[in-house]
Design a protein around this nucleic acid. Structure first.
Lengths: 196, 196
DNA sequence: TGACAAAGCGACATATATGTCGCATAATAA
DNA sequence: TTATTATGCGACATATATGTCGCTTTGTCA
């Protein structure tokens, strides 16, 4: 494991990420990655033995990153509405960024892989996000900032709408205002003062 | 074009549909379809020259079917809440039916096809659904049954959450109650009496 | 600097999917 | 029944991706 090797592997992952985001998982071959990186077949196989292996490394590096600064904010008693605002802004922003999204590739990958439905990174990310959101909403209810009947239900509306948008944006021009509309409606579901 | 040929083509489409629903688009080859139908290579190619051609015929037959009985119900002044109830029930039911869903295959197909983002059947179905929903919600507002701030926004929450669920259900066990939660929250966004 | 390991190369063997073609068989109509 | 056409067959040629291997080049460290 030399420095050169590390650099090459990083380059392979970065290049592959672009290809996966652009074309999905199945559409990318080892040959494509060779050509895009400038490596030869032997050179590439020296480091990775399949597109699946490369893909998994990318995805796992991804899900490790995500974590709950939200929970520490709750502990520090920052108002729920403020935390909500920031979190929704992040969701809205990510919804608009289809260029760099490998969502579709992830779904393509896991939907046909041998990896159990109960033990893939999609499931894990869903569980983590759910925990954080339910915690946040309950906190907001306890401080009387939110008036939410069913925290889990609101979370599900948000997370699936979010994924729906990311998916659709691969297929058609998504109006920039749609992410804003969605987080707007989520806010209406949570905040008292917007009810009529 | 004989009866036998029609029957064969129908059988090919039915079989291919199952395969696409199960494995996605890219994962299905002409060879797979041969084996699943019992046809030989030559026999299959006699009728269809690619998986893409078969897929498009299936998808188009699909989107032709969908149409607006909703609009006629509005004309007949059936209460908006009643129409809403029926429509949401249909959405919830479809969300739960991942076995027969080719959503993922459709997205896979169009996301890499040469077909314009502005001119694919996904876009078309979206436009049709949007028109119907906005019509329905405005009707409900006019009869004072709904108290909706932004009809289009509510539609977007629903349609994207719906697609998100269909997609996710390919990847992990989706709790049966989730579709109900989602349509429940949509109702809360529309109906006055559920506000607190 | 010399020796050893890591990285890189590209031809090759293998595997799999595509698309074609001449021939066989089954349906249909005169 | 027979001529004609549609359907079906499977071997074959083609194309493309995979994975391997001996060899060369490059980096690293004593």
């Amino acid at each position: 494991m030399s420095q050169k090797g590390d650099k090459t592997r990083q380059n392979i992952r970065d290049t592959a990420y672009r290809l996966f985001a652009e074309k999905g998982f199945k559409e990318v071959t080892m040959k494509d990655i060779c050509e895009a990186t400038g490596l030869s077949r032997g050179g590439l196989y020296r480091h990775y033995e399949s597109t699946g292996q490369i893909f998994l490394e990318i995805v796992n590096a991804f899900s490790d990153r995500q974590q709950s600064e939200v929970l520490t904010k709750i502990e520090r008693r920052i108002p729920a509405a403020v935390i909500l605002e920031e979190l929704l802004a992040k969701y809205a922003e990510e919804m608009s960024d289809d260029e760099n999204s490998i969502s579709l590739a992830i779904y393509e990958f896991y939907s046909n892989s041998a990896i159990s439905k109960e033990d893939n990174s999609v499931k894990k990310q869903y569980e983590i996000a759910k925990e954080v959101w339910v915690e946040l909403i309950n906190y907001g209810i306890s401080t009387k900032e939110f008036s939410c009947v069913n925290p889990e239900a609101v979370f599900h509306v948000l997370v699936f709408a979010y994924q729906g948008v990311r998916m659709y944006s691969k297929l058609m021009e998504i109006d920039q205002k749609i992410p804003k509309q969605i987080v707007g409606e989520i806010k209406r579901l949570l905040l008292k003062e917007n009810d009529n």
